[in-house]
Write a protein that binds this DNA or RNA. Structure first.
Lengths: 255, 255
DNA sequence: CATTGTGAATACGTTCACAGCG
DNA sequence: CGCTGTGAACGTATTCACAATG
């Protein structure tokens, strides 16, 4: 078992850069909105603004898909929607299982944007017999004993893990053994999966910590800004390493 | 208003690379687990395995923080926990508000990993008068009329948006106007924020689409692999891509 | 002639490989 | 002697800037 690698590293494939792939859904969302407003064409500049990127990046991204634009004009909205959908594999149906129907699992089951775009919640699975048989978002919760059967009966290849961290690895292994090859992990754990299985993680706590880092830095800069009377043009002093008197002993807090 | 930039681009600062910052929480989590098991020291190799990265990357990351290891031995667990916590700004308390107490907001409010690590849910805010006054995770839900007052009374600088996409931008603007400078956005929208405000987004739909892309590619590779006579080892039935001879016109689906 | 598509330049991130050191 | 810390090499991503073109 390889340790939680996320993507095939070497595989040259047909080579759409990973960073580009990660932005395609963003473009698609912006394009879908335009499509709904019946906008026929859009320039790279406009679309980029709607997607929150810059236009050079967007054009480069699209260049990996092929030449779908018209010089002097822009891109045909419907056509691009289709091309990106196809590239992302959204023209087919993806049955998905959610394992762990606590607050978060239930929230995801109810999430509307799930059902759209070719993703279909094929089953909700929970280990708690209390949950079994209940309906969440109109879908019955099934017991985890059924996991393997559900996966194979429905041809599920994408699994979502919303269990407590303690059982996530174990659930992951069962999913993979049953045939799942893509996992979206909401549990705060590093999952180990065999080669060929993709894992993506969503981790609230990590996101907050990253924000805290930048927040702290901002505070440092402000403090520095006060120091000079004349507004220093670019006197960025940055939270210089001195963290007060001296870093003596920790004050560790629990996980 | 700048369009949803996520981080200061130019700012040279003291330069811990963004990629490194994003991994620090991962190291911290692994270290905390070791600390709980009273492991005194750990090598870069071991810690890297626990965090799901390779050891060269980990050592390089730590080198940006300073030289906290001992050659021939490894890293002192407690000391590293402290140094990373400090670097991330987790030695201080971060009051956080969650706006939009639907399924997801409630899930986050209940999320345990939230309260640990210096983050404290200072308030839950919802626009629905029905919700107001109810308790979620032991915290009373307050009406969004109070938003500005709550932010300033509690010195909140981090806001979490779990509203429907339609109101996310508007909520974002109120948060920013009230003094929030870091936003974690769960709504599937691009947020526009002024310079100096950080936005991070968590987007289920995007993650699934990225997985679908790779999943689709795997299917394609298999098909190719079949061409050779030898029985493909893991003949996973994969919902094969070909949606007909050629993609003629779209079949656009709603957002 | 506005806008795409893309080489070339730059910036950022990862990995290698080994000198330095406890 | 084992493991860290880090320059140098490599690879990936972003941005620039402009020639190509409908």
């Amino acid at each position: 078992m390889a340790t939680g690698r996320t993507h095939r590293p070497a595989t040259r494939s047909r080579g759409i850069p990973e960073a580009t792939v990660a932005r395609l859904p963003l473009y698609l969302r912006a394009l879908t909105a335009l499509s709904e407003r019946s906008v026929p064409t859009v320039s790279s500049e406009e679309l980029a603004a709607a997607a929150g990127v810059n236009s050079a990046k967007l054009r480069k991204d699209f260049s990996y898909l092929g030449s779908y634009g018209t010089r002097g004009v822009g891109y045909d909205v419907e056509y691009l929607v289709y091309q990106i959908s196809r590239e992302l594999g959204l023209t087919q149906d993806w049955p998905v299982v959610i394992v762990g129907i606590g607050n978060l699992g239930a929230a995801l089951a109810n999430y509307g944007g799930f059902a759209s775009r070719g993703f279909r919640v094929a089953a909700l699975i929970d280990a708690d017999p209390e949950m079994t048989g209940r309906q969440v978002a109109g879908i019955p919760v099934q017991h985890s004993d059924e996991l393997e059967k559900i996966i194979s009966d429905n041809g599920v290849s994408i699994g979502v893990i919303t269990t407590p961290p303690g059982v996530a690895q174990q659930v992951c292994e069962r999913l993979v053994a049953a045939g799942v090859t893509s996992i979206l992990n909401f549990a705060p754990t590093v999952l180990s999966v065999p080669d060929g299985v993709d894992v993506r993680k969503v981790d609230l706590s990590i996101e907050l910590q990253i924000l805290a880092f930048h927040e702290q830095r901002k505070a440092g800069e402000e403090a520095a800004a006060q120091e000079s009377a004349v507004p220093a043009p670019a006197a960025r002093r940055v939270n210089t390493t001195d963290q007060g008197p001296d870093g003596d002993v920790p004050a560790v807090m629990p996980a």
